[in-house]
Design a protein around this nucleic acid. Structure first.
Length: 429
RNA sequence: GCCGGGGUAGCUCAGCUGGUAGAGCGCCGGGCUGUUAACCCGGUGGUCGGGGGUUCAAAUCCCCUCCCCGGCGCCA
């Protein structure tokens, strides 16, 4: 049995066995309250000296916070118990006695990160992990039921996907290799047979970022489809996100409550389509707000945050100047100074969660772009090949899973959207 | 990489116009039959991040260095 299940009228008066960990212990002398935690939640257990055998009593006296134990008792309703139900203990046995637990409450960020392997048990992080589970499950469901093939691109690669972003270098036998920062180029190769593909992989960025929105290692959900133009792809992006949010709202109500997440904007976000504005329009809005920005500048964190306050659901910004976007994005044929690219920004100040585009499918144009960006065409030979053998219009996007989770869960830092966050200054534990 | 803040007890912090350290919590011991981060009484606790300098005297002033946090840039 699990703690949450037995906390109901149906179980009152019934004898149950539970196993879990000591969440809290309060010793009153001849009564000991032990709050049991298992993967489902918590329940208070009452050990009363006059109602248990000597062995159980001495186990209860000895047990410490975070010890694992097995307990047998009768469920009863009691207004004084947290949650309204408690277990009146008959037998209790310690399985793994815990040393003094290093986390008590009130510790600082650094200390908690050093003790991440223990802090991971907290109700907050447990709730986030459950939300992340539902996010991934919902994404897989959506893609599965809409005809997308799941594929497994490589993590070890021979060169950069795009110049600029820093790569982690690893020893690869006698050569150098890099940890992938995007599966996109490989997904592009796979659309020639499967047409609609997606992958969920770790991506790595060796940037020395110091922000609440960056991880050195994060989970990347990427889609790529043949015959899709930018607008087809944006429709997929918004449907996917809306579906995920709808599922999380339904499945993870309790966890969102635990996190004190105000779900008003999430409820809005299950309705598509999402608003679309062009980069031109974004600049205009920002200028009217008195921000110092000129056409051609990339949207910085402040600008993004300001824009997100204009909407009550995720929205798209499209048609960015070509110089601030990647080489593989297709230029707008009606206006070659902008690309057929789009970002999806989450509201409430969260900002970019998706980046996507229509890809350049013409060999000569792509080659020209690669050279313009100062990249070495030899590194992209196989990628260019795709434009020589039955090229096809296609589009794709990448979603930062932790960024999406961060927004849905209402977190103030991306590190809590993943169990063991990796930053420049942190690889332990 | 840049800007700002910070490293003092196991944890969170005070002390910083120089006079070799203090609180709360934890921990240990005792008490307690309805606690909700239980409470009450007693006890325990420190190379003041590291190195160098000034001084009779440095947690405190100066220089160097390491580490962490927040923000920006970069991006998902």
């Amino acid at each position: 049995m699990k703690a949450r299940n037995v906390m109901s009228k149906d179980y009152v008066g019934k004898t149950v066995w539970l196993r879990g960990w000591v969440h809290r212990k309060r010793n009153l002398g001849s009564k000991i309250f032990i709050v049991l935690r298992d993967s489902s939640g918590i329940i208070q257990c009452l050990v009363s000296k006059d109602r248990v055998d000597e062995e159980t009593w001495s186990e209860a006296e000895k047990i410490t916070r975070e010890s694992s134990f097995i307990v047998k008792g009768v469920i009863r309703e009691d207004r004084r118990a947290p949650g309204g139900y408690e277990l009146l203990v008959e037998k209790l046995r310690i399985v793994g006695l815990s040393d003094v637990f290093p986390i008590r409450g009130g510790e600082g960020v650094d200390y908690l990160l050093d003790n991440r392997h223990l802090w991971i048990r907290s109700t907050k992080l447990t709730s986030v992990m459950k939300i992340k589970h539902s996010v991934l499950k919902a994404a897989r469901e959506y893609l599965e039921s809409n005809g997308w093939w799941e594929v497994t691109p490589p993590i070890l690669t021979s060169s950069a996907v795009e110049g600029g972003a820093t790569l982690f270098e690893v020893k690869y036998f006698d050569r150098k290799a890099y940890l992938s920062q995007s599966a996109q180029l490989y997904l592009e190769a796979l659309i020639f047979s499967l047409e609609k593909v997606w992958s969920l992989t770790p991506s790595f960025r060796a940037e020395k970022s110091r922000t609440r929105r960056h991880l050195a290692e994060y989970w990347h959900l990427e889609l790529e489809a043949a015959w899709y133009n930018m607008h087809d792809m944006m429709k997929v992006a918004e449907e996917l996100v809306a579906y995920i949010i709808e599922r999380v709202l339904r499945e993870r109500k309790l966890e969102l409550e635990t996190l004190k997440r105000d779900t008003k904007i999430l409820e809005e976000s299950i309705h598509t389509p999402y608003p679309r504005i062009t980069y031109d329009k974004a600049i205009e809005i920002l200028k009217n707000k008195g921000m110092k920005i000129e056409w051609g500048d990339d949207l910085g964190a402040d600008e993004e945050r300001t824009l997100t306050m204009e909407f009550n659901k995720p929205f798209f910004v499209t048609h960015f100047p070509k110089q601030i976007k990647a080489f593989y994005m297709k230029l707008d044929p009606t206006r070659p100074d902008v690309v057929l690219g789009f970002d999806m920004l989450a509201p409430e100040g969260y900002g970019e969660i998706i980046g996507g585009s229509e890809r350049e499918d013409d060999y000569e144009k792509l080659l020209k772009r690669i050279i313009e960006f100062g990249l070495n065409p030899d590194d992209y030979k196989w990628y260019l090949d795709l434009r020589k053998y039955g090229t096809v219009p296609h589009s794709g996007f990448g979603l930062g899973v932790e960024r999406l989770v961060m927004w849905i869960a209402g977190l103030d830092h991306i590190r809590d959207a993943t169990p063991f966050p990796r930053f420049r200054e942190r690889i332990y534990p």
